[in-house]
Amino acid sequence: MDPMTIKYDASQRFDLHTHSRASDGMNTPAENVKLAQEKGVSGLGVTDHDTVAGVKEAVEEGARRGIAVIPGVEISTRAGGKDIHVLGYFLDAEDPVLLQRLAGLRETREARNGQIIQKLQGLGIPISLEEVIAGLGRQLRPDESLGRPHIADALVRKGYAADMRDAFDRYLAEGKPGYASLPRIAPEEAMLWIREAGGAPVLAHPGLYGDDALVSEILERGRPAGIEVYHSDHGPEEEQRYLALAEHYGLIPTGGSDYHGVRQGVVFHGDLGGRCVTGEIVERLRKAAGK
């Protein structure tokens, strides 16, 4: 099933924000596609952090199962003193310039992870990056990315947090003692990268930034194709607020669960299929990408 050529319509349900173990998800890309089929979801976006390593496997599994897989990415950026994420859809996951740029972002991510480990050690927590990687139970591929959820998982296993949310609330969330952030590209630069790779850029989960004035500035500067209105961490009031922003700026209102899988029996962010949009939204994204 070629995601560039199939017909999208209002009867279909798409979860446009999912993560695999190519970044900080728990499942393989193929397992996420299988789960989408089991949940009656028509298709999903594969949007791993700073990597497209899971796209090929997911697309191939989608073709076998009749599930449409939208090639995507979630790029880490920085603006207004906050970490801002930019989603990209229908991009060329084999574009050599994009792959080189994402490799650079993963190097920054690795340096950031090292700083987090140092801060945790400074708090008296005996933890190492090697220990975090060992917790994966497999070798980390060069085109995969390691994130804070992996570190949080190690903190839980070592007894320094009750669960993933507790690990973030105690140590890893912005403003907490284990948090670290290095200089990153601006959101509008990530949006340009996505366009140059043939994709449609979307501002991810604006409700998580706690600064709607900054959100509006980013939308004005970057002029993305869409904004993620529907997200597992958005309540009804936030959905209405960002839907109004989408209408004001003429943006596509996208949505997804931000599914990362299950850790210690807890689904991180939301369950796959928990936030969906219709195929009409997907068709608008495809057109915005020029496909």
Rank of each mutant, 00 (worst) to 15 (best):
M1Y: 09
P3N: 05
T5K: 14
T5C: 01
T5H: 06
K7H: 14
Y8S: 09
D9V: 05
D9T: 12
A10R: 14
L16S: 02
A22N: 07
G25W: 04
M26H: 09
N27I: 00
N27G: 02
V33M: 11
V33A: 08
K34M: 12
Q37I: 00
K39V: 05
L44F: 03
G45D: 02
T47E: 07
T47I: 10
D48Y: 13
G54Y: 10
V55S: 02
E57R: 03
A58G: 03
A58H: 01
V59Y: 03
V59W: 05
E60M: 08
G62N: 11
R64P: 00
I67Q: 11
A68F: 10
G80E: 01
G80F: 00
G80M: 01
G81L: 05
D83A: 14
I84M: 12
I84T: 11
V86P: 07
G88W: 06
F90Y: 02
L91E: 03
E94I: 09
L99I: 06
R101N: 13
R101Q: 14
L102I: 11
G104W: 07
L105T: 09
T108C: 15
A111K: 15
R112L: 14
G114P: 09
I116D: 09
I116M: 15
Q118K: 15
K119Y: 03
Q121M: 08
I127R: 03
L129H: 09
V132C: 05
G135Q: 11
L136P: 02
G137H: 08
R138W: 07
R141W: 09
D143F: 08
D143G: 04
G147C: 14
I151G: 02
I151C: 04
A152K: 11
A152W: 11
D153M: 13
L155Q: 11
K158N: 00
D163I: 04
M164C: 13
M164W: 07
M164K: 10
D166E: 10
D169R: 11
A173L: 08
K176E: 06
G178H: 02
G178V: 01
G178Y: 01
Y179G: 04
Y179N: 03
R184W: 06
P187F: 08
M191Y: 04
L192W: 12
I194W: 00
R195T: 01
R195I: 03
G198T: 08
A200L: 03
A200D: 01
V202K: 04
L208M: 14
L208W: 10
D211N: 15
S216E: 15
I227A: 05
E228F: 11
E228R: 09
V229A: 07
Y230Q: 03
S232Y: 01
D233N: 15
H234P: 10
G235C: 05
G235I: 00
E239V: 09
Q240E: 14
Q240I: 03
R241S: 12
R241H: 12
L243I: 10
A246T: 00
E247H: 15
E247V: 12
H248M: 03
I252R: 05
G255P: 02
G255T: 05
G256C: 00
S257W: 10
D258P: 13
G265N: 04
H269V: 15
C276Q: 12
T278D: 13
I281W: 00
R284H: 08
R284P: 03
